[in-house]
Computed example of a mutant assay.
Amino acid sequence: MDTLYLTDLLGTGVFAVSGTLTALHKKKDLDILTLFIFAFVTAVGGGTLRDIIIQAYPVAWISDANYLLVIITGLLLAVACRRWWLGFLHRPLRVFDTLGIGIFTILGLEKALHVGVNPWAAVLLGIVSALFGGVIRDTLANETPLVFERQLYATPCLTGAVLYVMLLQAGLHATIGFLLSVAVITVFRLLAIRKGWSLPPIRG
């Protein structure tokens, strides 16, 4: 198995955990099928939209059952360990969500580059990959999607994606660029949460 594929599965699992924790946090007494829907749309919603845009068929989770197995594993892990996570991690939903957006931003960008998309359009597709599953998730939970709140959410993704393109153009090895860019997104987002950073509003 290549590194890109394994990373995609990892990101899928992380987002499945995030989706499940969101459902458990926002809604009470949900059955396992409903939890699966939250895990599923969070894990593959953004990537599916990206693949449709770039016409990368068949969509990964349709042709490869491992994606569904990873989603189910993430769901069960989140349910089994939810009390431990809530007691051990500060805002576990945000932690797993942040890891997910970091991985999927650069992974989605890289996939777009592989099919010949120009680098700056690939940056936008990386952001779509990372954020739109969460938009669907939050909409199902009857919550305002995080990307539409004032806190910095898309900005760390944009920063890391642009950094990745610049590192590639500078000749840095793709794996090192990937790790550095994911780290930048993750740290930037976690600091923004901790410090309450936000962009200034534009008044009408």
Rank of each mutant, 00 (worst) to 15 (best):
N142I: 10
N118H: 12
A121P: 00
V123G: 05
A121F: 14
L125P: 04
K111T: 01
V79F: 14
N66L: 03
G100Y: 04
N142F: 14
F88K: 14
I127M: 12
V128D: 09
L75E: 03
N142M: 14
A80F: 15
V128Y: 02
V123H: 08
V115A: 06
F96M: 10
G100F: 09
T139W: 13
F104R: 04
D97P: 04
N118S: 11
V115W: 06
A121C: 06
D97E: 10
T105A: 06
L76C: 13
I106G: 02
L75W: 03
I106N: 02
A122P: 13
G100V: 09
L131Q: 07
A78W: 04
R82V: 13
L76A: 13
C81R: 13
W85M: 15
L89D: 00
H114P: 00
T98W: 07
L77D: 05
A112H: 08
E110M: 14
R94P: 00
R82F: 12
D138N: 11
L93G: 02
A121H: 11
L107K: 04
L131N: 13
L109F: 10
D138R: 12
P92H: 06
I127Q: 10
L69V: 11
R91G: 11
N66D: 02
L93D: 07
K111N: 12
R91C: 00
I127T: 01
N142G: 06
G108D: 08
V117Q: 07
V95T: 02
G133D: 10
W84C: 08
G87M: 06
G102N: 05
C81H: 06
R137G: 04
L69C: 03
V79Q: 11
I106F: 07
F88V: 12
V95N: 00
V70F: 02
N142V: 15
I101P: 01
R137E: 04
T139Y: 14
W120L: 13
L113W: 10
G100T: 05
T105L: 03
P119K: 01
I101Q: 07
I71R: 01
I136Q: 09
L76F: 15
Y67H: 06
V135I: 15
K111A: 04
I71G: 00
H114Q: 11
V115M: 04
V70W: 02
T105D: 09
I71A: 01
V117Y: 08
A112W: 05
